[in-house]
Structure formats: C-alpha cells, structure tokens
Write a protein that binds this DNA or RNA. Sequence first.
RNA 1: GCCCCUGUCGUCUAGCUUGGUCUAGGACAUCGCGUUCUCAGCGCGGGAACCCGGGUUCAAAUCCCGGCGGGGGCACCA
Length: 445
Amino acid sequence: MSNIHVRTRFAPSPTGFLHVGGLRTALYNYLFARQNGGQFILRVEDTDRTRIVEGAEENIIETLRIFGLDFDEGPVRQSEHLERYKECAKELLAKGVAYEDGDAVRFKMLKDGITSFTDIIHGEIRIENKTQEDFVILKSDGFPTYNLAHLVDDHDMAITHVIRGDEFISSMPKYIALHKAFSWELPQYAHLPLILDKNRAKLSKREGEMAVKDFLDDGYLKEAILNFAALLGWHPAPEQSSVLGKLLEKEIFSKEELIKEFKLERVQKAGAIFDTAKLDWMNGEYIRKKSPRELLERIMEAGLPLGSPASKPEYLEKIIALEQFRLKKLSEFPEKTNYFFKEPEYNTALLKWKNMSDAEIKKSLEISKNILESLGAQDFTKENLEKIFLDKAEDLKDRGELLWPLRVALTGKKASPSPFEIMEILGKDKSIARVASALNMLKPH
RNA sequence: GCCCCUGUCGUCUAGCUUGGUCUAGGACAUCGCGUUCUCAGCGCGGGAACCCGGGUUCAAAUCCCGGCGGGGGCACCA
C-alpha cells in the first residue's frame, strides 16, 4: 500500500447538517489518508437541486474544521462539473451502451451473469446482474445522478479508495459496469456498516438530536465525539495497541493515536447502535483532563451562559476547577455552579442532616457562623477551613451535623463540592451572609 | 416480493483467517461494598453474551449446511 498514492474523499450531499454517521465516514477517510501519507478531499454532491438545504454545506465544512479533519482539496462541487458529466453521457451514448429516454439518458445494464468484487471490509461480494435495471445517468434537468457523477469525479480526482456507507453495496454492479464502459480502472472499495439508532433503524437526520452541531451545542467536547465516533465500528487489535498501554483499557484515543492505530480492514461488518451513555462517560473523561482555562474557552465557544458578563475569567476558572470532576457535559456547568452567582434558594428542610432537630440545626449553623466570624479574610483557604472545621467536628458524633447544614446554607443543593472549597472561593463576607440567612430562615415567624 | 449485507454480555467490542491456551476478555451502563457531610471521583467485587438446529472433528464462538432474527437496496435521492 505504500507504493500507491492514496487519495480518499468525503462526499456528502448538502441536504442537511452533518450528522454522526457522516462524521464517522469523514473520519475514517481522513484517518486512512493520513496514515498512508495521502490526500483527503471534500466533495459536495449537489446534483439534486430540489433537496439542497440552505446552510448545509457551510455546516458540513465548519464541522469538519472544528474536528480538525482538514481536507487537502476542495470543497469541490459537482454542480461545477456539469459539462464533464454531459460529455461522459455523450460518450456512452456514442458507444451505444446508453440511450435517450425522453430528456434523460439511461445506461444499459447487462442482465445476465454475476458481478463480483472485493470489498476491503466485507471481502468478496457477489451480486446477480439480473437484479439490476437500466438506470438514469443524466436527468432531464441536465444534472447527472449520483450513479454517474460520483464515479466520474472519483476517476477524475484519482481517488484510490472509496470509503462510504453500506447502502451502496447493492448498486455496485452499476458502478462496475460503468467503469468497464469507460475503460477506467476500479478504485478500492470499503463499505462501512451503518450506524443505527436505538430502534436499530438507519440513523436519520430527522431524529433531531443527531446533527453533530447539536452535540457540540449540548456541551460535548469535540475530542470525545471524535473518539467515540471512531470506536463506533472499529477497535484496535490488542497487540497493535500495546504501545498505548493502559490507555487501551479506557479506550481513550487522540486523533494522532487514531491515525497511527486505525486499520480499515478491522472495521466492523455489522451496524452499530448509537448509544450516548458511553459518549457521556467519555466526555466526562475529557472534561476531567482539560485545564479550567481551556474548559472556560470551550464553554464560551458553545455559547453556554456561565456566570454574568461581568464575571472575571480567573474567578470562573476557579469555579470550573471545582466542578469539572463532577459532570459529564459542559452544559451542566451553569446549573451546577449557579450558587456562586446568586443567593441559593432552597427549602429549610434541606438543612436537616439525618435526625437533627431544628434547634440542633440552628446550633450547628451558629457554631459555623462563629468560626467564620473569628477568621480573617486571609484565613479562607480550603486547607485552613478544613482543618478548623474538622477539629470542631471532633466534638460531635457525626461530622455531618456540622458540615451538611453549612454546605446546604452555602449552596442550597443536596450535592456539591465540599464547603471548604466553596468558601475559599466565596470568601468571608458571602460565606457568613449565607449562613446568617439560613439561620434567619429557621427562625419561626 | 426480489436482491445484498449482517448476527459474541443491555450497548461498543476482543477472540473467529491458522479449531484446543475461551469454565469467552475489555470498556460503558447496572448492582453491591469501601473511602466520605453530599455528589463526583477513586478502589474492590457481583450479575450479564457466543441467535437456533444439524453436521465435520478426539475437540467449535471459531469450519460446513439449513433455519431464524436485524439492517440496507430495488428513484430522473444520495
């Protein structure tokens, strides 16, 4: 494989935003080209004028850019090659292997015998020619059909490996017959299994949530999406992954590692169901590994509302550092950290730890308040606070009696980071104010 | 209906080419225990699959045949 100049292409039709299946197809084409030192090309198949969706091409290009699937050539649009397709149709007409059918041109299929070819993923595939019919290659509006256009371009662009979805396998006799008619050499084919939804049906853009952009907007990291997409239908061989050591167990791969490890021949033959549970976990893994600064940038890029416009980046980063180990998606940050930006709202019942009475809760909060008031603002570090409060809690039979009411007073939440870390960020005045307001709420009116 | 592809835990999969080392491995999810003020994380542990039926063979997840299941295609869509 090293002596041929590999050229792959991703050839979407601009009929909708790029979805997960398309991203995976693009990724595999990209990985295969890169690992072979070849080229990856983007071609827009815009021959069906009626189905073109405004903004789709831009979305596809932008999404590819975001994921770093840089194409070496393109975007090449088929609508720019109309004359070429017409010439090709004319050539077939002249050869007598195509005929006019109204304003359209049809290609004559031989109906006997068997067409067989070797697919990189599936191996040998044999299809009876009688299953094929004469098919339109040039439509009456002057545009070519996919059947003609894709293969003329693949030939003209010297594509060596056609890596695309499984749904084209049934039509392979058409493409092979066409190649023969033109006396062109056949590229290599790799038909990818489809990605299925939870109902085992082909993933459709209509499913709503399936556009890659939606995942990005929802707070999934591009690294996680790419990693997950790569594993949807492919896994490294154990030996080959020894270099990755323990990382294999976790199945976390960077794009560079994928370029190194990916093997087209190892792509799965059966369709894979797209299940977001694993994506969620993987996204959490990536969020944990990122620096707060980078996470802040990503949150901004995704347009998520964190804090107020006046919030200082340094302040936001501290808060992110606190929560980044506790969530799976960037979109959870605003809700999980809202107590840093506004007074918590909660029911006083939440202040109760186990069987504490109201009087005990009050006493607990008063102890906390006294401790906080006795400290200087510079003493508000989590280490310091932890030491002082834990020492104090020694007197109690259960640390929770001191810490739970305090933490709820600070956050208004059942679940949050420890009160020490929170108070370090909140500072003396706000911390005391929140404990005081909890105390106030407990007073019978 | 016809044709094609495909079938290992709930999900993604390793293993299948070169049958035995597979009482089928990993990851996610799930359940339990521990750490612990809560959550998350981390550590430990549990349950969970070779679609079915025939062969071949001393031996089959692995080879062969037949069913059945799932998906895709059969457009002047791609």
